[in-house]
């Protein structure tokens, strides 16, 4: 059962480097979006406004998706997983 869920998790996890990619992925497939963030509340709010996704967390297992914030393009401070929630 765990493996089935894991497979689905992998299938529903996407990377986004721009808001265009972010919006496209989340609107077609929903799921987790991995994207970098500058750390500002403004960008966090903007992402929620444009996509309905909240930041879920800054994972312990960090990844480097890109150098810049997916929203404003400034220097990326954190790797964040985003998603719409229940």
């Amino acid at each position: 059962m765990f493996e089935l869920c894991k497979k689905r998790l992998e299938e529903k996890t996407f990377i986004a480097k721009t808001m265009e990619e972010f919006e496209k992925q989340i609107n077609t497939n929903q799921g987790y979006i991995k994207a970098m963030w500058c750390g500002s509340e403004e960008c966090e709010d903007k992402i929620k406004e444009l996509t309905g996704a909240h930041s879920r967390c800054m994972p312990f297992e960090e990844e480097h998706v890109s150098d810049t914030c997916v929203c404003c393009g400034k220097e990326a401070k954190h790797f964040v997983v985003w998603g719409r929630q229940y």
């Binding site: 529903k12 929903q30 799921g31 966090e44 930041s55 879920r56 967390c57 994972p59 312990f60 998603g83």
Partner: peptide, 29 residues
């Protein structure tokens, strides 16, 4: 998915909040 919440999503009054996140069949957190 294990990690740290952003300042905005933290528990009200906490220094840090750590979370366990799961994904539903329809792709919501």
């Amino acid at each position: 998915l294990k990690g740290r919440k952003t300042p905005k999503e933290k528990f009200a009054g906490a220094e840090e909040t750590y979370t366990i996140e799961t994904l539903t069949r329809d792709g919501r957190a």
